[in-house]
C-alpha cells in the first residue's frame, strides 16, 4: 500500500501573473504502517503535497506511484485510490451536509457502491472508532458542538476503510481536551488497525508525541526527512523556517547548558521525565 512520489512538482495557474510553484522536485516514499508527520510554515506546500497523495491534484511534472502503479496512467482506477487513501481536510466539519450524522457518514461508503448492510456496519464501526456519542447519531450535524462535528466528519472518512489516512491539521480550532481526544483516538486506531497515518500539524508537541518520522517542508521542498529526534536536533534551522522544536526540547537544552547531565535530543514530556528522574538516580 505504499505511495511513492518521484520528483513531483506542482505549479498553480501556470503562465499568468498568479503563477506560483507550490512544490518543486519532491521525492518521498510512504511506507506501510507508518505514522508520518508533515510540518512546515503556512504556504510551504504541505496541503498541496498531501492532495497529490490521493489524486486530487495532478503533478505538473514528476510521477506518483501507488502500489507500484503509475497514477497518471489513463486506466488507473482513480476512484479506488481515493477510497484507499482517506483524506481528512482542515476543518472537515465544513463538508457535512446530510440531515443526520448517520446519513452523512453513509455518504462515503455509499459512493463505494456497497450493500446497505455493509454500509450500516461500517458507519456504526466508524462512529464507534471516533467515540461518537450514540444518542447523537440521528441528530443534525449542524446541532453538534465543534468537537463532535469534527468526530462525525472524521468518521465519514474512516467509514470508507482507507489503508492510508491523511489528516490535515485535524485539531485546528479545538480546545486542548478535544485535541487530545482526537489525536489519542487516531493513535489508538493506528496501533490497533496498523494503518498508515499521515498527520499534518502545526503543533510540534503533537508531532513529537505520535509520529515515527517527520517531513519538514520549506518553500515547496523537503528540508528534512528523519525521525523526530533527528529533525528536532536541528531546532535552530527550524526556527529559520518559522518552525520550532517542542518546548520540552528547549527546556532540556537549557538544563544541559546549566550543567545538568541530560540528553539534548528529548522531544516528549515522557522522555524528559525519565531523564530528570535519572539525574536523581531513580529509574
Amino acid at each position: 500500500m505504499s505511495i511513492i512520489l518521484d520528483k513531483v512538482s506542482h505549479v498553480y495557474s501556470p503562465g499568468n501573473a498568479y503563477e506560483t510553484t507550490a512544490l518543486s522536485n519532491v521525492s518521498l516514499k510512504i511506507e506501510d504502517n507508518e505514522f508520518l508527520g508533515i510540518i512546515g510554515h503556512t504556504g510551504s506546500g504541505k496541503s498541496t503535497l498531501i492532495q497529490h497523495m490521493n489524486g486530487l491534484l495532478k503533478p505538473s511534472s514528476g510521477t506518483i506511484y501507488y502500489n507500484g502503479k503509475d497514477t497518471s496512467k489513463k486506466d488507473f482506477p482513480r476512484k479506488e485510490l481515493r477510497s484507499k487513501v482517506g483524506m481528512v481536510f482542515q476543518y472537515p466539519e465544513h463538508q457535512l451536509f446530510e440531515p443526520t450524522v448517520f446519513e452523512d457518514v453513509c455518504f462515503g461508503p455509499k459512493n463505494l457502491g456497497l450493500s446497505k448492510e455493509e454500509v450500516d456496519d461500517r458507519v456504526y464501526e466508524a462512529l464507534k472508532l471516533v467515540e461518537f456519542p450514540e444518542e447523537l447519531i440521528s441528530a443534525s450535524p449542524f446541532d453538534l458542538s465543534g468537537g463532535q462535528k469534527r468526530r462525525a466528519a472524521i468518521a465519514g472518512v474512516l467509514a470508507m476503510k482507507p489503508d492510508i489516512l491523511i489528516l490535515d491539521e485535524p485539531t485546528a480550532g479545538l480546545d486542548p481536551k478535544g485535541r487530545d481526544e482526537i489525536l489519542g483516538m487516531i493513535d489508538k486506531m493506528h496501533k490497533k488497525t496498523k494503518n498508515t497515518v499521515v498527520l499534518v500539524s502545526h503543533s510540534m508537541e503533537d508531532i513529537a508525541r505520535f509520529v515515527d518520522r517527520i517531513i519538514v517542508m520549506n518553500h515547496g521542498k523537503i528540508e528534512y526527512d528523519d525521525t523526530p529526534k533527528g529533525v528536532f536536533n536541528n531546532y535552530k534551522e527550524l526556527e529559520q523556517m518559522g518552525l520550532r522544536a517542542p518546548e520540552i526540547t528547549y527546556l532540556m537544552n537549557d538544563m544541559l547548558r546549566y550543567g545538568f547531565d541530560v540528553s539534548s535530543d528529548v522531544t516528549t514530556i515522557e522522555e524528559a521525565k525519565k531523564e530528570i528522574l535519572k539525574l536523581y538516580g531513580i529509574n
Binding site: Q51, N54, L56, K79, R82, S83, G86, M87, F89, P92, H94, Q95, F107, G108, N111, L112, G156, V157, M160
Partner: peptide
C-alpha cells in the same frame, strides 16, 4: 473548490 475536493475524497462523482 475545497468542499468539492473533500467530497471527492469521500468518493463523490
Amino acid at each position: 473548490d475545497k468542499i468539492m475536493k473533500a467530497q471527492m475524497a469521500r468518493g463523490a462523482d
